[in-house]
Simulated scan of single mutants.
Amino acid sequence: EVSVAARGLFALEHLLYDPAYKGYAEGSYTCRLVAAIATDLARMAADVETEWRETEAPLLLDPTGSADRRYLSEKEVQQQFYTALQAALEFDADTRIARPLGTFDRPRPTRAEAHRSGRSLRNVTLSLEALRDLARALSDQPIPVTEAAFATALETAADLDDPVFAGVEDPAGRLKVEILQQRIDAVAAAVAGEIGDQLGVTEGFNSADGD
């Protein structure tokens, strides 16, 4: 009955952490909305898990043995995961970091993801750790260049004492955030040159490509 903006983790974060909403009374409209969003999230998570276990995972494991000809070969499955890896790295650099960076004349720190709950940098770090695991799983050979690039990016994130990228408004702080963005771009380049070449695949379309 309300806008789609009231759905999902970030709507929930807004209600739980924004000073205009937090501290609501039990049974109030805000309280009931929080409960509704949480219930909706739980339902969506259960649906995703069920679809993964019952449909997607079996299809990816045996792409040519299914009547669903979504994938015509194991190579297409590899490309799907490779595209997911590169798209996620792109999202970290071009959305999670670029949005608060804005421009030098007009930085936008309040556009940082999950800034109200202080998770902006933590979300980037957790994403990099998960993507490193995916990169390792994608390759059956050593990937020293990719490993080194991930290590450098994670070290840069660990050294960045700016949990919500508020420092983008200060030239010195902005430079540190830009360096992290560059480190993530370097990871994407390493993945392309090492894993992509090894698998013989290139990045396919992803949801950020539009029409």
Rank of each mutant, 00 (worst) to 15 (best):
I143L: 07
K22D: 05
D47W: 06
V2H: 11
Q78D: 12
L33T: 12
K22C: 04
T152V: 07
D18I: 00
A172V: 11
P109H: 06
A45L: 09
L9A: 14
G65H: 04
G102H: 06
A38P: 00
A11E: 01
E90A: 08
I37T: 05
K22L: 07
K75I: 14
Y24S: 03
T146K: 03
V2T: 12
D40C: 02
A130M: 12
L128F: 04
R32G: 15
D170W: 07
A87Q: 07
T146A: 12
V201Q: 06
I195P: 02
S66H: 02
R53C: 05
R99C: 01
L160E: 13
A137G: 10
R116D: 09
L154S: 02
E49C: 01
R106W: 10
F91D: 14
R53F: 09
L15R: 02
V34N: 10
L89P: 11
D159V: 01
R106F: 11
P171Q: 06
A157R: 00
E1N: 10
L15P: 03
I195L: 03
E129V: 13
R43C: 01
A151D: 11
A114K: 03
Q86A: 07
Q86F: 02
I37H: 06
E49G: 08
R43G: 02
Q141N: 10
M44S: 03
T103D: 05
R116L: 15
V164P: 02
R136H: 15
A135F: 14
A137N: 10
E169F: 02
H14G: 10
E203L: 02
L9W: 02
I37D: 04
S127I: 02
D140W: 00
A137V: 01
D209Q: 11
S139W: 06
T39G: 13
F81T: 04
Q141A: 15
F10T: 12
V34W: 06
D133F: 05
A186F: 10
K22S: 09
T64G: 03
E26W: 07
L199R: 11
V168M: 01
E49K: 13
T30C: 04
T146G: 08
Y24H: 12
G102E: 08
R70Y: 12
P19H: 03
S73L: 07
A172I: 09
I97V: 09
S73I: 08
